[in-house]
Design a protein around this nucleic acid. Sequence first.
DNA 1: ATACAACTTGGAGCTGACTCCAAGTCAACC
DNA 2: GGTTGACTTGGAGTCAGCTCCAAGTTGTAT
Lengths: 159, 159
Amino acid sequence: MKAGQTFTIKQTAAQTGITEDTIRYYEKIALLPRANRKDNGHRIYREEDVNTIRLISCLKKTGMPLEEMRPFLAVSVDADPAEYPELAERLRSHRETIVSQIASLQQVVDFIDMKLDVGKYRGDCSEENKDGALKKEIVSPIEMSYFSVSAKAGKPVRR
Amino acid sequence: MKAGQTFTIKQTAAQTGITEDTIRYYEKIALLPRANRKDNGHRIYREEDVNTIRLISCLKKTGMPLEEMRPFLAVSVDADPAEYPELAERLRSHRETIVSQIASLQQVVDFIDMKLDVGKYRGDCSEENKDGALKKEIVSPIEMSYFSVSAKAGKPVRR
DNA sequence: ATACAACTTGGAGCTGACTCCAAGTCAACC
DNA sequence: GGTTGACTTGGAGTCAGCTCCAAGTTGTAT
């Protein structure tokens, strides 16, 4: 056991890429639990805490609002989500969201590749079927041209 | 030629999932070009315009700030980005950003799968190498545990 | 003792992206 | 001719997520 190495807030910020101010802010809004303090009141973080902050950073990159992260942080703190079926359901639901986000992103990559190669592009960015939210007649089979894609020869890309 | 079918702002909003207010807002900040008007001043949109709005919506899903979308919309309006090398460079650069975003998202999916399956998880969410921006000693080879992943048997997941 | 660096707190201010509103125009129907 | 509905404009308000600041404390170096 290489027992508890700890970090200052500055070190933690450096490790995670999240600023000190923002870390304090997360604690202020209770997204992070109150950090332990040294006798002088300075915050100390363990590897565990650093990992939680990394998880936040990761979820942030997926565009998740801070409020929605709470269940994720909960599940990472206590053990098995199977014991909290409602939580597991949330995870599953968010998984679907992310998968469709990946699809959206992939389409943007395709769009860029198409533009750079002056190749061809098709597909749209729609699709939505979560719980609430809009869902009209989905624009599926449009020959998505995003303006002047003006049928030039298309070489496949997909590096 | 099934010549110019046009749409009201309401129809356009319905088709794209972007509210009328937001469409007007995009025009106000000149993210969209000023729409043509009917004699009574009402905006009219062509399929072309609708596709531009869809592109915005798509880029939005990738978390791109509106300001950064301008080059994308430019490239979708006029023809070949090869003629604007600086623009092409931006596209390439943003492509890399998106590819690494996809990786981040995939890691969240893995995290969720791991949590749901009580399997195993590794990998972090770091990586950054665009132009400006921070880049410290990157936390690469951590056995990313996100708290209590407490070595239980790991069955491979991957959707 | 004095300076300094690294922190603390509470709170104000800022940016991006909407979102809402009031007042007005126009066309069409009753 | 009055009401209704779909739009217009300009501008104000809202919310999330920081970001900055001032004033104070503590620990170490000179």
